[in-house]
Amino acid sequence: MSIALEIQRVCSDAVRQHGAGRIGSVRVAIGELAAVEPELLRFAWEAVVAGGPHAGSSLEVVWCPANQRCSRCGEVKDRATGSWLRICPDCGLPLDVTGGDELDVLDVTFTPDAEAQSDDAAGASADDAAGDR
């Protein structure tokens, strides 16, 4: 729930920088090692935005698996999702594990308020890559 609140804060900041508007959907990257369950996060998002200006908006999860690589045997294949294996099943060497710890807000889709005045929040910095969809 607190992660959903933080995501809402980051998204509201980003939308405010482009005027104001109502969030339709957000895309969030979740790594498989981030200890976040996508279905629960979607549910928490619904609860967090309920009753507010972004009520009814949706949260889309982009799932990011971790890469596990053995210096001798290469990529570990047929790995169960969420597997935390740190030792190569074939040769026993420690694996090099990269990625999978993502917990990032990727982008926000919003409908600008027709009568919104721009009240730019000072300080925050989102990449300036707004475009029509």
Binding site: E6, H18, D104, L106, P112
Partner: peptide
Amino acid sequence: MSRVVTVRRRALEASE
């Protein structure tokens, strides 16, 4: 017309 803003920020950046 809806717009898309690229954010690419850590969700827990304030906490971090």
